[in-house]
Amino acid sequence: MTDVTTVKCACADCVCVVKTDGAVEKDGRFYCSGECADHHKDGSGCHHAGCTCHG
Rank of each mutant, 00 (worst) to 15 (best):
C51N: 13
V4P: 02
C46Y: 06
A49I: 02
T52D: 15
C36R: 01
T5Q: 00
C36I: 03
C14K: 06
C9H: 01
F30W: 03
G45S: 11
G43A: 07
D21L: 11
T5H: 05
M1N: 03
V15R: 03
S33N: 08
H54A: 15
T5E: 02
G43E: 04
C51R: 07
G22N: 15
D21C: 10
H48Y: 13
A10H: 11
C53E: 06
F30R: 05
T6C: 11
V15F: 03
G50N: 04
V4R: 05
D38S: 15
T6W: 01
C36D: 10
E25R: 10
C11R: 09
G55E: 15
A49K: 07
G28V: 02
A12G: 07
D38A: 15
V15G: 13
C9I: 06
K41E: 14
C46L: 10
H54K: 13
E35Y: 04
H40E: 14
V17C: 04
K19W: 11
A49M: 11
K26V: 11
K41N: 13
C36H: 03
T20Y: 00
R29Y: 11
G22P: 00
H39C: 03
K41W: 01
D3C: 14
H40T: 07
F30G: 01
C14H: 08
K8G: 02
T20Q: 15
R29D: 05
A12D: 10
G28Q: 00
A12K: 08
T52N: 11
E35S: 11
G55V: 02
E25K: 08
T52Y: 10
V7C: 09
H40S: 09
R29A: 13
C9K: 06
T6R: 15
K41Q: 14
D42K: 14
C36L: 09
G43N: 03
C14W: 03
V24P: 05
A23R: 02
C11I: 00
V4D: 01
F30H: 10
D3P: 12
A12S: 12
V24H: 14
R29W: 05
A23K: 05
C53L: 03
G28N: 04
A10T: 00
C16G: 06
E25C: 02
T2V: 15
